[in-house]
């Protein structure tokens, strides 16, 4: 399964990297440091519970640090930037693997629970493939079996309202 390779017309390449299990580590100030498995192979379970507050998501050599509550405003700006980049670069992909291995999508997943209201609002306003990110961040899948894309979106939005992430 490929990862993004900007050198090839914005395409994703490099199937091997997605087979790795990445790790999420809580920042020390949160009080826990044990790793949490975070597998990005979409055919395997991508669900893994993430911390409720600040954390570092390590993907190979890339680390992201986000999501302390006071950083919400900058998070929104960063989220918007990454969404636009992801949409532009992946518009013509047929492969979900390539879409979710794009660096911007991984960065958004790395934002963790703090990004849930942003992702859900994005899903509501401009439907796109956010199900993998939502599943990876929350560790759940509220979508009934055999759902279409629209039914899956409705299930996630309903879950978001129920949990108070979306109004």
């Amino acid at each position: 399964m490929p990862v993004h390779n900007p050198s090839k017309s914005g395409r994703a390449k490099g199937h091997r990297q997605s087979q790795k299990s990445y790790k999420v580590r809580r920042r020390k100030f949160v009080g826990r440091t044990e790793p949490i498995a975070f597998n990005l192979d979409p055919r395997k379970s991508v669900a893994a519970p993430l911390p409720r507050d600040g954390f570092v998501l390590t993907m190979g050599r890339i680390s992201y640090t986000y999501a302390k509550s006071g950083e919400q405003e900058s998070l929104q700006g960063e989220f918007r930037k990454q969404v636009e980049q992801w949409k532009e670069d992946t518009e013509h992909y047929s492969s979900l693997s390539k879409m979710i291995m794009h660096p911007s999508y991984r960065r958004i997943m790395g934002m963790g629970p703090a990004a849930l209201p942003l992702i859900l609002r994005e899903l509501k306003e401009r439907p796109d493939h956010w199900f993998v990110a939502l599943n990876a961040i929350t560790g759940i899948d509220p979508v009934p079996d055999r759902s279409t894309f629209d039914e899956a979106a409705r299930a996630w939005l309903s879950w978001g309202v129920q949990k108070g992430y979306l109004h």
Binding site: R43, S45, V46, F131, V132, V143, P144, A155
Partner: peptide, 10 residues
Amino acid sequence: QFWYDVNING
């Protein structure tokens, strides 16, 4: 539907 084999619904 988006046809792809992934272990989540939708």
